[in-house]
Simulated scan of single mutants.
Amino acid sequence: MRTILQLPSVLSLRAFEATARLLSFSLAAQELFVTQSAISHQVQKLEADLGVALFERRARAVELTVAGQAYYAKVHAAFELLRQGTREARAPMSKLTTLTVGLLASFATRWLAPRLESFHQAHPHIDLQLQPEIALADVCGGEVDVAIRYGRGRWSDVHAQRLMPERLSVVCAPAVLAGANRPREPQDILRYPLLTSHSRQPFEWDAWAHRFGVDLRNARTVQLHDYNIVVEAALAGQGIAMGRHNLISPQLASGGLVQALPDTILDEPGIGWWLVTPKAGMSKAASAFCAWLTETAREVVLARTH
């Protein structure tokens, strides 16, 4: 008789999938409504079961190992299949309309999620599914119904409406500024590691450097997978980050992050968060979400300017 392969527990797989998708034990804990230690325990249990390390653990940040990336691709696909099957099975009974939104995990967790309750109350018939990914979700091809993207709005074959501008400044933990060597001029940041997300020199660093006359060619950069990790690494004092004020306002308010050079704030009108929709039109559910999101973003911008 063939031996049946014993699968890891569903709890361990859920903890791993959420942590790998969000690249954060704390954010995974928030999503699954458990403690961070519970998530860490389940992931360690899974690693022991598989006999491989799935994550590289750093101070306040994690990254997938090569084995972890390969395993996540399969586990994530399996959970997506389960989610889709559940939606299809549930829809005829509840008459819910599913709406899929593609966006960055950092925007989902740090800006959108805390505001979603008002949308759910206004539109209980819409089953909102957030799909956080680094890669741009395919709006035209139907991978998602709408998307929220960060940048300058220069995407082809889609309709892009700016939701709100982004204020940028270099930020770090207060401890980084201690001592006589704290940065006093824009070029002084080159003494520190520059924390970046996804690409070696994201456009926001280039835009800031161009505005304030800094040559980044010899900068020491630390490339991290996601902006959530950039924020956590900055909070841990591992370098200087480009602060997206819409996402880090709680950390600035609490003093966990401070502006390294308060006089070098970049308010470039073209840089911001964009609502991306297909040119061919939208469903009623997508239109309702876009209207709610646009109004919510408008209120945030108004509150910030008053």
Score class of each variant (00 low, 15 high):
Leu302Pro: 03
Val144Phe: 01
Val34Pro: 08
Ile148Ala: 01
Trp292Ser: 06
Leu104Val: 04
His123Gly: 00
Val276Leu: 06
Gly256Gln: 10
Ser283Asp: 04
Val66Ala: 12
Leu82Pro: 03
Ala20Asp: 00
Val34Glu: 13
Gly102Trp: 13
Asp188Met: 06
Val101Ser: 02
His120Cys: 04
Lys45Ile: 02
Val214Cys: 01
Ala286Ser: 15
Ile271Cys: 07
Glu133Cys: 06
Ser156Cys: 07
Val34Gly: 01
Gly239Phe: 02
Ala28Gln: 00
Gln238Thr: 01
Phe25Gly: 00
Glu232Asp: 14
Leu11Lys: 11
Ala70Leu: 13
Trp292Asp: 02
Gly141Cys: 06
Ala137Met: 03
Ala286Val: 14
Gln223Asn: 09
Asp215Tyr: 07
Thr65Gln: 08
Ala147Arg: 01
Val276Asn: 06
Gln251Met: 07
Val231Cys: 03
Arg298Gln: 15
Leu112Thr: 10
Leu190Ser: 04
Trp273Ser: 03
Ser94Tyr: 08
Ala89Pro: 02
Asn218Cys: 11
Gly151Arg: 10
Glu17Gln: 14
Val230Glu: 10
Leu81Asp: 14
Leu50Asp: 00
Ile39Ser: 04
Pro183Ile: 06
Glu17Pro: 03
Leu293Met: 04
Arg182Leu: 11
Ala73Ile: 01
Lys45His: 13
Gln201Arg: 01
Arg154Asp: 14
Thr65Asn: 11
Arg57Met: 08
Pro278Glu: 02
Arg211Met: 09
Glu295Trp: 03
Arg304Pro: 08
Pro183Phe: 09
Gln44Cys: 07
Val300Glu: 12
Val170Ser: 05
Ala122Lys: 11
Arg83Val: 15
Arg217Gly: 11
Ser9Gly: 11
Thr277Val: 14
Leu23His: 08
Ile271His: 12
Arg304Phe: 05
Gly255Cys: 07
Arg217Glu: 09
Ser249Lys: 10
Ala253Asp: 12
Leu177Gly: 06
Trp208Pro: 06
Pro186His: 02
Ile39Gly: 02
Pro269Leu: 07
Leu46Gly: 08
Ala233Gly: 03
Ile240Lys: 04
Gln251Ser: 10
Arg149Val: 14
Ile134Leu: 14
Ala91His: 04
Ala28Asp: 00
Gln42Ala: 09
Trp111Thr: 05
Glu63Asp: 15
Leu302Asn: 06
Gly243Gln: 05
Leu257Gln: 00
Ser37Ala: 10
Tyr71Ile: 00
Trp208Val: 09
Lys74Ala: 14
Ala160Arg: 13
Ala122Met: 13
Ile4Pro: 11
Glu31Thr: 08
Glu63Arg: 10
Leu54Trp: 09
Asp127Leu: 12
Arg217Asp: 11
Leu257Ser: 05
Ala175Glu: 14
Ala137His: 04
Ser197Arg: 08
Asp157Phe: 02
Lys284Asn: 12
Gln121Asn: 13
Arg191Ala: 14
Glu204Ser: 15
